[in-house]
């Protein structure tokens, strides 16, 4: 019963949604089901938030390894939650925007959250360099082609790319390195990406059918498939 009901729901909803694409009077069903999901997901946030608080309280009470970090997490969680919920320091009334200039929420957002997020994102610069160093080696013919392509694209985004091929006449402008870089990205690269996307599309069809037909049940916690 615990597994049968979800399987029936999956089958019925999946089939109805596929049909709704082709049957105009059923058109809005897709939107409605997305809305239902959003509503459920919002309530599920309490599960997540609750779990976060519980796990970190536990860490502190048991004095587990690195439990000091849990203090930071919990303080951050409760301060931000209260600032947003009670609109602390908001210049307008309760109806005004939570991110209005001057509100505590916006101040923390701008001075703590934004720099922290950007810092994490900025790590990419370091990691791209170390990954390129390891990965772009001319180990075989295919890897050599990739290496050459990567070099052209990197050169294309520097002024040296323009300088190096500035002597090439305008009628052969495709061989200007910046143009070559754009061509590499928009033609061979895109062709490859599209092939992958077609494969992904078919993969999605296949896994969706397995889900709708009930062949795939692991996501329901059923390992019998």
């Amino acid at each position: 019963m615990k597994r049968t009901v979800p399987l029936i729901i999956t089958f019925v909803v999946g089939t109805v949604l596929i049909l709704s694409v082709f049957i105009p009077p059923m058109e809005n069903l897709g939107e409605n089901f997305t809305l239902f999901f959003d509503i459920i997901a919002v309530f599920a946030f309490f599960l997540g938030g609750g779990n976060l608080v519980r796990v970190h309280f536990q860490k502190i009470s048991r004095k587990s390894d690195d439990f000091q970090f849990s203090f930071v997490t919990l303080i951050g969680f409760f301060v931000m939650l209260s600032a947003g919920l009670f609109k602390i320091g908001n210049p307008g009334d309760i109806a005004s925007s939570v991110t209005a200039d001057g509100s505590l929420f916006n101040t923390i957002y701008q001075s703590v959250f934004v720099p922290l997020s950007s810092t994490m994102y900025a790590l990419l610069a370091f990691f791209v360099a170390s990954a390129s160093y390891r990965a772009f080696r001319a180990k075989n013919r295919e890897a050599t082609w990739l290496l050459i392509a990567a070099f052209i694209i990197l050169l294309g985004s520097t002024p040296f790319g323009t300088m190096l091929t500035s002597w090439v006449p305008e009628s052969w402008s495709i061989f200007h390195i910046p143009n070559l870089a754009v061509w590499l990205m928009s033609s061979p690269n895109l062709a490859g990406q599209r092939a992958i996307i077609i494969g992904i599309g078919l993969g999605v069809v296949s896994i969706s059918l397995r889900l709708i037909l009930g062949l795939e049940r692991t996501y329901l916690g059923d390992d019998s498939a």
Partner: peptide
């Protein structure tokens, strides 16, 4: 920064290949 970083990445790719060969 982006231009200089690209040049440095290119230099490291070359170094990596010298090492490999």
């Amino acid at each position: 920064p982006q231009t200089l970083a690209h040049i440095v990445v290119m230099a490291f790719i070359i170094i990596g290949n010298i090492l490999y060969f």
